[in-house]
């Protein structure tokens, strides 16, 4: 549409108001979305702690099953959970292999070569480890998906009373992560235009990564100045423009986070599977 004219030329672009961004939901689960961000950290933590007292198949599988069911009730169906947690399963399989090969030997030995001894005992421990890794990590991943760092920072300061200088300093750093992606792209372009873009790709990526680190430290020092210029760190009486509180639903979530491992570990004790991991040495 743009013809060159005697007076100059024009380029027509879409108006900026029409360029929209999609808003991401806080969580796919209606339940998790209503929790205080701090609870989204505390819940998986409470849930995981009792599991560390044992390494057995029963507690881990019950916990995993209960978590998946509860997440389903919370609005995320198991297939979505599975899809969202794929790296967990890779890690769990890896742990399975390692423990199967090197775990404590007991019972029938199926295979032995150098340090590798696959026995009934090591296979049992491997299955238990596999389940435990998944039982701990799956709820963690789902709880934290879509978490907003700003809200988390507010919660850390107002609910856990962590020092605000550090929390907001870290928050500012975290926000810069979004800039890092843009910076990485821009650095790539500028290096290309300066003739530094050819050659060994590994060396190029390393040198560009170093450039990104340098640039981000540079940004961080400037950002620190900008924060100080707005009075950050000047006085100890900082107020909070956003309120972060625990509501009834948070307490419900803590109760669930206590009940689930209680059932899981309780069943293991009742069925005799519970064992202190280090005592069987």
């Amino acid at each position: 549409m743009s013809e060159s004219q005697a007076a100059g030329m024009t380029v027509t672009v879409t108006p900026p108001e029409q360029r929209h961004e999609r808003v991401k939901p806080a969580s796919q689960s209606w339940f998790i979305a209503r929790l205080n961000p701090v609870s989204r950290f505390i819940c998986p933590l409470i849930m995981s702690l009792p599991l560390f007292t044992t390494l057995d198949v029963v507690s881990a599988s019950i916990q995993l099953a209960l978590s998946v069911i509860l997440l389903w009730i919370g609005g995320i169906n198991p297939f979505v959970v599975l899809r969202r947690t794929w790296p967990v399963w890779i890690a769990a399989v890896g742990s399975f292999v390692t423990i199967a090969l090197y775990g404590r030997t007991s019972g029938t030995v199926h295979f032995a070569w150098a340090a590798i001894v696959i026995s009934d005992g090591s296979l049992y421990l491997a299955v238990a480890t596999f389940l435990r890794v998944a039982a701990i990590a799956v709820p963690s991943v789902i709880f934290v998906l879509g978490l907003d760092p700003t809200d988390l920072a507010d919660g850390l300061v107002q609910i856990l009373h962590l020092p605000s200088r550090f929390v907001y300093g870290a928050l500012a750093g975290i926000r810069m992560f979004t800039l890092l992606q843009e910076d990485w792209r821009a650095l790539g372009l500028s290096r290309r235009s300066r003739g530094l873009g050819d050659g060994n790709p590994i060396r190029r990526v390393c040198s560009q990564a170093f450039a990104l680190l340098v640039l981000s430290i540079r940004r961080a020092t400037k950002l620190a100045t900008a924060m100080e210029a707005r009075g950050f760190g000047a006085s100890d009486t900082r107020t909070m423009a956003r309120v972060s509180q625990l509501h009834a639903i948070d307490w419900v979530s803590y109760a669930i986070a206590l009940i689930v491992p209680a059932i899981a570990v309780g069943t293991a004790i009742a069925t005799g599977y519970w064992n202190l991991p280090l005592t069987s040495n």
Binding site: A7, G8, V11, T14, Q18
Partner: peptide, 10 residues
């Protein structure tokens, strides 16, 4: 000069 104008049709 090459001017950037905002399209009104869109």
């Amino acid at each position: 000069p090459i001017h950037f104008g905002v399209s009104s049709t869109a």
